[in-house]
Design a protein around this nucleic acid. Sequence first.
DNA 1: GCCGTTTTCGGCCCGACTGTTTTCAGTCG
Length: 612
Amino acid sequence: MTNHEISAVFRAIGSLLQIRGDDAFRARIYERAADVIEDFPSELSAEASEQNTPGYNKSAIEQLRATPGIGKAIQDKTVEMLETGRCRYYDDLTAEMGTGILELLELRGVGVKTVGRFYQELGVRDLEDLQALLESGKMRGLKGIGKKTLQMISESLAFRTQLRKARPLWAVLPIAQRISENLAQFGWIKRKPEFTGHLRRSEEICRGIELIVECQDESAFQFENGVVPDSLQAFLEPFSQTQIVFKTGDQTQYLYDSDSASLIEKSQDEPTSDVREMLPVIQFYIDQYFPASIYLCTAATSELTLFLTTAADAHFDALPDCPSPQTTEHGITEAEIYEELGLSYIPPELRQDSTSVAAAKDNTLPDLVEFTDLRGDLHAHTDSSDGRNTLQEIVAAAKAEGLEYFAITDHSVSSTVANGLDQKRLLEQVKQVRELDAEIEGITVLAGSEVDIRRSGTLDFPDEILAQLDIVVASVHSHFNLTEAEMTKRIVRAIEHPFVNIIGHPTGRMLGRRPMYPLNLEEVIAAAAENDTVLEINGSPSRLDLDPQFVRMAKDAGVLLAVNTDAHAIRQLSHRHSGLNVARRGWLTKAEVINTYTLEELREQCSIGVPS
DNA sequence: GCCGTTTTCGGCCCGACTGTTTTCAGTCG
């Protein structure tokens, strides 16, 4: 198991204990353990840490045990998970309570106390139970839950229900990776499975998992006599609660019967001429709601399959012609397919809608920004506010990543929960940053702040303080329930502030948790263009804010963007990757992303890197 | 469950603010 998976188990234990009404302090220990392991600097499993010994990474476990708050019980359960892949304590808890109850915690308007009451007093075990309860009217008159709260729960429930079919990339990726790793072990697979569909397009919200596996030869997916190889049976076992469909290339469909491990021919659908319907594929559901497709191909058909399955429907329909399924022995490459279609090559991230097809026809597709173009990060936190690492640690890590410059932007005083810095602490930090910058070779450290935009649009620090900073990122962290007009005015006011360089996570959305706050993006973008204020693409997988559609709007208005990590720990420096994906999906070129600038260019063109 | 002893139990608890409700749960990063 990976650190991430272990962390998720501990977090679930913590939540379940609270819902059941156990000791809150004990529950908190599990949550803290989840935090520690999530951000642990090395993988605890020997495999994941690439040590050759089987089992767990011994020195990492010792280091974990030495962490404050991690005791023997947590260590034992961690080792148990690394050795067996299971945690008996967790299994017992979920056997008693189910896992559906955890989904209720994601609802807005309720916390662990209310969910605990639903569970303990009303016997609610999942979203369906709650939905039924809401519809029955039994929730009305419940102590402590008034009309407004009820309304919020209802809306949030609808948001969650929708989310079962459309999930954030960060939630889907680990499942897809696990499936890919499981498949890769089988002898009939020639090389590691490849992501396609939503995953290959790097969509922030996925509606399915689609993988391509290249088989040794076609016999691997003809399934003659209804025989399914043992390895595939083992693979499909966890999904056998849902319908599993096998399609061969000739439009024959089979239903998989897990009891007899055999295929039963399914009544024929209407014949179709859509070549995508003729691809050999195994389709099933990850759980009740989320579809997965595993496309089977050979070396000769792999790139064609990749091409056909990467395009979103709207994009596919806009293609001038459908590529012919005939292939040569070596197979046809995607580049050759585009050439044949009379189009310039369209990067997977742009195969979302019809607009890229039109641009490919005219040869006007942008030259998209590349990961290697990124020179620095302009939004990161240390343990002075709510980051996990010290200034020295995270700067050293940024340097090791090859960054040329790195801005320290801890929270400001209003963000009390995040231990925001007051003026005195900020000025102390600025001094430390300047000292570190003078000391360290190979990277420039910038002194900044992620300043709260207050309710009225004023900033959390006076001008004479802001003037001493190299960079000011201004963000909204409170009062999310303003009207659209109020929120727009608030943010525009911050944009107009002469010392603000960048607006951080401009729409405030949290993928899978809450939608963006009401905001008139046209006005915000127009103001940013007018005032030369940069808008942020926040690379945190749970945000990915701005959304690509807004990135494109900003680009078209001539606004520059910053791809920032908002790193709260060293590992989160990797958020540059997810941020870059968004930039590419928003059609950005190198010149439109300020992190690709040299420090000198940043100073001259963005007034970043110098006190105001 | 963890920690640290006045060494085998007792204390631990992100916190200011909001909004709905009437005394407290939820929110924010």
